[in-house]
């Protein structure tokens, strides 16, 4: 199936999601178009991960419909979903020893038949993804011997090698130093912009969201939500309401930055 280039890659119509007693979203509707980079913001425990899992078809939603490239997600098999939608989960466990290149190559799995082996092009993709994320020198290193940040970038490399049109990212900047946070967001931003993909990313760094995301979804709790272009929604007022603490917009004339103001002490 060719991607319907004009329509949304992922569309939600009046989707309600809950996990246990927590209502994550009520009647959530949004459409993620090619080239859009969505940020999902919300306080701890509001259900960002559950939302992403729902979008990946791994958590049942109450009602509404999710469409992946114009087809209802619920009717697609995992085998049909995987080449089109991938997700970077919050934690990655490596059960068995393999080197980084082999680990990244696992991302080609949904594109290969049972009997076929990874081609030279697949290997080149894995190398390229590792290099892009600054792991080029570690290609032959065991995935068991990586630091937290390296392991995080390896998981992202696997997703890039999987190369789906819809990238779901659960706090991709976890464990990363500032330079690497910027590196991976640049890489992701390029993929979204230049290759017509869409990314939906849960994260806590408001300023990175302001910088990289074209759109944001704010999960306010109790199923309430706001979705729209970043420029409209990412304001000090909305953020203060979202996180239930005082957040100020600081503008030095070159860039606007949100700052956690804290409670003034007497």
């Amino acid at each position: 199936m060719e991607a319907a280039t004009s329509g949304p890659l992922l569309a939600l119509e009046q989707v309600s999601i809950r996990i246990g007693p927590v209502v994550v979203a009520n009647d959530l509707s949004l459409a993620a178009l090619p080239g859009q980079f969505w940020g999902v913001l919300g306080p701890n425990g509001v259900g960002k991960t559950t939302l992403l899992k729902t979008l990946a078809g791994l958590h049942p939603h109450c009602h509404g419909q999710i469409q992946l490239e114009g087809r209802p997600l619920a009717t697609l098999s995992r085998r049909e979903i995987a080449p089109r939608l991938g997700m970077l989960t919050q934690h990655t466990r490596y059960a068995f020893d393999a080197n980084c290149e082999e680990t990244a190559l696992v991302g080609r799995h949904p594109h290969l038949q049972a009997w076929s082996r990874e081609s030279r092009a697949d290997r080149a993709m894995a190398r390229e993804a590792l290099t892009e994320l600054g792991l080029g020198d570690l290609a032959k290193r065991s995935c068991m011997q990586l630091s937290g940040g390296e392991s995080r970038r390896l998981a992202l490399a696997t997703l890039l090698v999987q190369d789906p049109a819809v990238l779901l990212l659960d706090e991709p900047t976890n464990h990363l130093d500032p330079a690497n946070q910027v590196t991976i967001l640049n890489v992701l931003g390029r993929r979204v912009r230049d290759q017509g993909k869409t990314a939906i990313m849960a994260l806590h760094e408001v300023n990175l969201a302001a910088c990289y995301c074209s759109h944001v979804l704010l999960l306010l709790g109790d199923g309430q939500w706001l979705a729209g272009p970043t420029a409209e929604l990412l304001t000090a007022r909305h953020l203060s309401r979202l996180y239930r603490c005082r957040i100020r917009l600081v503008d030095d004339g070159q860039q606007k930055v949100f700052a956690l103001a804290g409670e003034p002490q007497r």
Binding site: A82, M87, A98, V106, H109, A114
Partner: peptide, 24 residues
């Protein structure tokens, strides 16, 4: 042997396997 690559994917855990196209 035809399932061998699926086994590699399963070794990464249920969720990872599902995301890579194996109905785990």
């Amino acid at each position: 042997w035809l399932r061998a690559r699926s086994l590699n994917v399963l070794a990464g855990g249920q969720m990872q396997a599902a995301l890579l196209g194996e109905s785990s």
